[in-house]
Design a protein around this nucleic acid. Structure first.
Length: 423
RNA sequence: GAGCCUGUAGCUCAAUGGCAGAGCGCCACACUGUGGAUGUGGAUGUUGUGGGUUCGAAACCCAUCAGGCUCCCCA
């Protein structure tokens, strides 16, 4: 039977299987974050529109935010990103926080976009930031966290690569080509779109922006120069630190990585699936020097990245790296032999739970084959049965489903027998 | 916000204007105290939804909803 009411467009149902993946990503993000000593935090899911109007682009505020009036008439929005909340909260306690601040978060976000592969309107995102240290070595730490995560979910450097660039380096190169600072943003956006465009059309767009042929040629050789990082002290130091941190194999310099975000000022990076199943970035981030000052705090530099759950979920699925799904958190089934022994089974299950085991009881008397089939389908590992023969002597039958062996033990020793099989 | 493609059983898909099907899964039984295997049988459906064309529509037309690809955007 099909339900007559569908989910909201771009929203997803989390059946136990999807919920398990979400929790898996959460656990891996937490592990990578905590391995580097980051503290978990969160902001409100509802924010005032003004928070985003202050810094975020017009596109985000006007077109891609879920905005509505509350009952008091104030405009509120479902948070489309976390960084403004971070800046606000840091600024509010700037005088009392111990820097550097190392914070991470995993929660829901909403953007009113066209849903497609790798993109939904309601999604979960891992955010992680370090504020108060402005150095390539700090940037390297965030890259190492990203690489640690990728490694922990089974994505090797050939499969998932983090491409890094530096805004300051590119700006100085643009300067050298005689591209005026006012044109940097346009040129950056153009670079960002290059991989999606037909080469001749891209050239035409570049000339439309007011570049001359010499500048265009210079820009193209710039974007083909994968040794360009050697001209940047920041990037040179970054790669030294990445090597020491043991993640250099995950990171490659790429002059084509720009990122659309206005607030990035130094190192920028994006991780991509190299097998091409998903063209969207798995994660992305960079250094931002001016964000705190923009929301009224003292100037404070930060570096961080964000990873949505949707793209990485697809990448893991396509790579065959989804973790095995456990249909039940319990590995033990206590059968109900018949009407008469029903409550005996319930009492036995209760004893096993008191001994610290997670136990499912079959909800009613049924034929044993049916109960065993249920245990098998739920991938349970142990079945405990009390039939008339056992009940009479105070015994229980404990069966190991993985090898089919069954032992008869005293009821008081059931928990121990189960534990032995599970260990 | 724009263009294109798709929507049939729980899942993957057939049926190209003429009786809506297959495989897998599901349920029951064979098996009256023990799962995975095998066999036999069974249930599946408002063909996304609403209109229209037609003697007749899953198919053709319009609208709408959802998904996918792309543009835009990716904070």
């Amino acid at each position: 039977m099909k339900p007559s009411i569908q989910t909201v467009k771009g929203a997803r149902d989390f059946y136990p299987e999807e919920m398990a993946l979400r929790n898996y990503l959460y656990a891996k993000a937490r592990a990578a974050s905590q391995a580097f000593g980051y503290q978990e935090w969160d902001g409100p899911f509802l924010e005032t529109l003004d928070l985003y109007a202050a810094k975020s682009g017009e596109e985000l505020v006007k077109k891609q935010s879920f905005v509505f009036a509350d009952r008091g008439g104030d405009e509120v929005t479902l948070r489309p990103e976390l960084t403004p909340s971070l800046a606000r909260m840091i600024a509010a306690r700037q005088g009392s926080l111990t820097f550097p601040v190392r914070w991470w978060s995993f929660g829901p976000f909403w953007r009113y976009e066209q849903p497609q592969k790798g993109r939904s309107r309601e999604f979960f995102q891992w955010n992680i930031d370090m504020l108060g240290v402005n150095s390539p070595e700090a940037d390297a730490e965030l890259l190492a966290i990203a690489a640690t995560f990728l490694r922990s979910v089974g994505l090797d450097p050939q499969r998932a690569t983090i491409f890094v660039n530096n805004r300051r380096l590119m700006d100085s190169q643009f300067d050298a080509l005689g591209i005026v600072p006012e044109k940097r943003l346009d040129v950056s956006n153009l670079v960002d779109r290059r991989s999606k465009m037909d080469p001749s059309q891209w050239d035409a767009n570049a000339l439309d922006l007011g570049l001359n042929q010499t500048q265009l040629d210079g820009l193209k050789s710039l974007l083909a120069d994968y040794d360009l990082w050697q001209k940047s002290e920041e990037l040179t130091r970054l790669f030294v630190a990445l090597e020491a941190l043991g993640v250099k194999d995950y990171v490659k310099f790429d002059p084509n990585i720009m990122r659309g975000l206005l607030y990035y000022t130094g190192t920028v990076f994006e991780a991509f699936d190299q097998t091409g199943g998903v063209r969207r970035a798995i994660l992305g981030g960079g250094r931002y020097d001016n964000l705190l000052a923009d929301v009224g705090g003292q100037p404070l530099s930060g570096v961080g990245f964000a990873m949505g759950d949707v793209v990485v979920g697809i990448v893991l699925k396509e790579a065959g790296l989804l973790p095995d799904f456990d249909p039940t958190p319990s590995s033990v089934l206590v059968t109900v032999f018949d009407e008469k022994l029903w409550m005996t089974s319930y009492a036995l299950a209760s004893e096993l739970r008191a001994a610290g085991l997670n136990v499912i009881t079959f909800p009613e008397p049924a034929k044993l084959p049916k109960q065993f089939k249920y245990a098998d389908k739920m991938k349970m590992r142990v079945v405990v049965t009390v039939g008339p023969d056992e009940a009479e002597k105070g015994l229980v039958a404990v069966k190991n489903l993985s090898n089919g062996e069954q032992v008869i033990v005293a009821r008081a020793e059931a928990a121990e027998a189960v534990r032995k099989i599970l260990s």
